[in-house]
Simulated scan of single mutants.
Amino acid sequence: MDRLSTEPNIGDALSFVRTCHLVTMLENSLYRAKSAKLQCSKVLVPKELTARVAQEALKLSLDEPCGLRGCIIYVNLESNNKQASLDTIIYDCSVEPTFELKLVLKQDTQGWDYVRDLLIHRSCFPQLFRSIIKLSPKFQISKKRLYFSVIGVGNEDCQ
């Protein structure tokens, strides 16, 4: 048996930890935005949405000098073809940002408006259902570098 195949891959473990940390940061961001920006009682998030966003952010950070640690994420919500800023996430405050990600989450209105209206009319607590926002499983993420690559320059200090 090959000795290397039984040992855990440190790179994979580190990627998993960073992804989990970013998922937590995204969930906390949505929690804060719920009352501060969205003024709703609940935000319904599709299963695995934050994990998929975190994995995509990790992929986009692979060719960056500081990796995910040099990332700023601008979280926005699109509803009725309008975007609202929800939060800004700085992955690691101790590292000078090297790139920005613009994350656009989308409000899911297909089918939800009908279900919500049914709940409002048949519920003892109609106000509760009026203030629920459901997110779509779809999202957009775009990257903007905050530096120019120069061939022959040494490594970026990311400590």
Rank of each mutant, 00 (worst) to 15 (best):
S136Y: 01
F125E: 12
S79I: 10
R3W: 09
I141G: 06
E156V: 09
L68Q: 05
L38P: 07
D117R: 10
T109W: 07
W112N: 06
S35C: 05
A36C: 02
E48N: 13
L22R: 01
Y91S: 00
K134V: 09
L14S: 07
D2K: 12
R32H: 13
K82Q: 15
M25W: 00
R145Y: 04
D87V: 01
D2L: 07
D12L: 11
L62P: 01
I73S: 12
F148A: 15
R122G: 04
R52T: 08
E156R: 14
S41T: 10
A54P: 02
A13F: 11
V43N: 03
R3T: 13
Y74N: 12
R32F: 09
R32W: 08
Q110P: 04
K144D: 07
K82L: 14
V153F: 11
E56N: 12
K37H: 11
D87M: 02
D108T: 08
A54Q: 04
C40R: 07
G152C: 05
L14R: 10
A36W: 00
C71E: 06
R3S: 14
N9L: 04
Y147D: 09
L86Y: 03
K144W: 00
C158H: 03
K42H: 11
Y147C: 13
I151E: 13
S15Y: 06
V150K: 13
V95I: 15
C93V: 04
K34N: 08
S149C: 07
L103G: 02
Q127K: 12
H121K: 09
L58M: 15
L119I: 08
K59E: 15
S61V: 00
R122P: 00
R52G: 10
